[in-house]
Write a protein that binds this DNA or RNA. Sequence first.
DNA 1: ACTAGCCCCTGGGAGC
DNA 2: TGCTCCCAGGGGCTAG
Length: 284
Amino acid sequence: MPELPEVQTTVNGLRRVLPGQKILNVWTDLNTKDKRKRDTVANPKYFSGFRKKIIGKKIISVTRRAKNILINISGEQIILVHMKMTGHLLYDHCDHGNRFIHVIFTLSGGKRLAFCDARKFGKITLINAGELDTSKHLRGLGPEPLEKSFDLHKFIQVLRRRPGAPVKTALIDQSIIAGIGNIYSDEILWAAGVHPQRKIKTLKPTQYEKMFLVMKTILKKGISFGGDSVSDYRNPAGRRGHFQLHHRAYQRTGKICSRRGCGGVIMRIMVGGRSTHFCPRHQK
DNA sequence: ACTAGCCCCTGGGAGC
DNA sequence: TGCTCCCAGGGGCTAG
């Protein structure tokens, strides 16, 4: 469940080691006929072209947009990596016994960059830099929640584009705000004291303000803990993040709410097809 | 135009 | 011990 903080943690790790290196080779064992993966290295036909286009190219920088890792290479091209549910990138920590490694880039510095993904949902594709924002991979994404320019006014404005949606559904909608997923949305709503099924149009100004503030602090907290490894996420060095040790709602079903003086019991319900954890006592 | 729901995939945990 | 069933959920896609 890599979300913004996990993707940022990976980017922070990679941008210290990748820039300046050349890509010497790339290997994959992925092989699919799924037409949804037509434009990824999982498609053998695409992979041979991908391989030709990136070999010999130099890595310039590593950035992030929403939950996508963008590896900018020479020749005005970008390798886009989406980790989806269980994916992660490993730098110089790809041991041969790891059967979940599906893509390996050999680099000029003598180290390797590997894409590890137990469930093979992840995506690796190549985009021309000039077409990045209009590509189907990034087109339609909402604003970055941690940008300074993303203020309370814009927060309210984008959420109100889905007036009838439950607030939980709106928060994880990538076209509304980019980068929030199931874990951080539950944590944001717990901290804001907002019920996940509350409809956007019924939110009070004070609730918007509280949600906005805790959204920024919780996402930053996620980054400062090196992401959340409740599931498969690992940083480029193969190590776990620690945000999972600080969950207040996510996967705490049946536990006493840790808000001081609350005493509620965390519940799990389905909202918009996603399991949702919240405290029915203090989240209104 | 919108949304609900299925599907991709496989490990891990629960239940028997 | 080992089998089966269910759950995890980002996001593409389709049917309504």
